[in-house]
């Protein structure tokens, strides 16, 4: 029974001490501590949210990068293709031009050769005629004595000339 009855002295001390403790702690401990914990939780949440946002941004940027890389690659391919086509066309043109040029030159050369040949032939004919006149003169000088023989000779010469 004695254990159960609260002693008035301790009741007074406990009330005063506990209320004092509560007010001191509430003002100087719980308030700053709870505020700090709350603030920190808020900060952590915010930081996590920010990290999540940054991650999304990263993913977006990576995708964008990939996209632009792809585009650039495609563009490069296109440019290369175009350049190749251009090169081919240039080469082809040059080739055909060279061919025609060559053909023209050959044609020219042929004509020249023909002309030269003709001139040579004409000169040859000229020379042959001069030579034949020379020969004929000489033969005539030598063999005009013998009429028959002369006749034969001339005929023979003429025959030869006609062969050409």
């Amino acid at each position: 029974m004695e254990l159960l009855v609260p002693e008035i002295g301790l009741v007074i001390f406990q009330t005063i001490a506990f209320l004092l403790l509560m007010f001191v702690l509430a003002k100087f401990a719980w308030k700053p501590v709870l505020a700090a914990i709350k603030q920190r939780e808020h900060d952590i949440d915010e930081a996590l949210n920010k990290a999540e946002l940054a991650k999304q941004e990263m993913v977006r940027l990576a995708a964008q990068n990939e996209e632009s890389m792809k585009e650039a690659r495609a563009e490069r391919d296109l440019i290369l293709k175009e350049a190749k086509a251009l090169k081919d066309s240039i080469v082809n043109e040059a080739k055909s031009q060279a061919q025609t040029e060559g053909a023209k030159l050959i044609e020219k050369a042929k004509i020249e050769i023909e002309n030269q040949k003709k001139a040579a032939l004409a000169e040859l004919k000229d020379q042959v005629s001069t030579l034949s006149i020379d020969i004929a003169e000489r033969v005539l000088r030598n063999q005009l004595t013998d009429k028959a023989k002369q006749q034969d000779l001339v005929a023979g010469l003429l025959k030869d000339v006609e062969l050409n």
Binding site: E7, G9, F13, L21
Partner: peptide, 20 residues
């Protein structure tokens, strides 16, 4: 009316000092 500093009162004060 007994408002002595008893053993429990001392412990009360000590505990409050420790808690503070």
């Amino acid at each position: 009316l007994d408002i002595s500093i008893t053993k429990n009162t001392c412990t009360l004060l000590l505990s409050i000092v420790v808690i503070l």
